[in-house]
Computed example of a mutant assay.
Amino acid sequence: MTDIVVSSSRSPHSNTRRVADAIAEALNAQVVTPHELTQDMIDTADRVGFGSGIYWFGFDRQLGDAIDRFPAGSRDCFVFGTSGLPEPPFRRYTAQLGRRLEERGFRVVGTFICRGLDTWGPFGLIGGINKGRPSSADLEHARDFAASLMS
């Protein structure tokens, strides 16, 4: 069993939830919010996915709070997310979350990031950037990523 954790409550577009659902479909997994995650879910999962939209060059704080809420333990995990802009080389947020998870005893076995509709600040004035994202191709790549976790 794989549990997927998604923190998309701040996004009005459900970008990350759509990616989480695509990954969950491929893994036959359940999607939960950080608040719904329990120690029992972590203990019984083969893999746990941690994902959210990217806000100010980082994952949602609710996701980090959920990670820190549980005692350290050994479990495979993966990281996924959606972002309006590419991950900058000066702020590798996937690596930061990966290190945080490894400090808690998780083994990060993969990461997946794709573009999502972003209407924050000035982008909203022009109707947003990355309209139509995540696209059907992005969701197919998310399913492919999930399949790679199974091998």
Rank of each mutant, 00 (worst) to 15 (best):
L139G: 02
S83A: 14
R133K: 09
L63G: 01
F70N: 09
R10Y: 10
S7V: 04
L27V: 02
I23W: 01
G53R: 01
P12F: 05
H13L: 08
F80A: 06
I113W: 04
E102H: 05
M1E: 15
D60F: 04
S136M: 12
V48Q: 01
G84Q: 02
D138F: 02
F80W: 03
W120S: 15
I113H: 04
G128N: 02
L37I: 02
S83D: 13
I129P: 00
D118H: 03
I126C: 10
G128Q: 05
R61G: 15
S135D: 10
R99Q: 13
T33A: 13
A137C: 12
I54Q: 04
A72T: 10
R91W: 03
A45W: 05
A26Y: 00
I67A: 03
G58T: 09
E140M: 05
L139D: 03
I129K: 01
T38Q: 11
F59H: 06
F90L: 08
S8Y: 11
A137F: 11
F78K: 04
A142G: 04
D40F: 09
P12Q: 13
Q96N: 14
A45S: 12
G105R: 07
W120Y: 11
S11K: 00
F59S: 02
D68I: 08
F112K: 00
L149H: 04
G51D: 08
P89L: 03
G116W: 00
W120G: 09
I42L: 14
I113C: 08
R69D: 13
N130D: 07
W120H: 13
R104A: 13
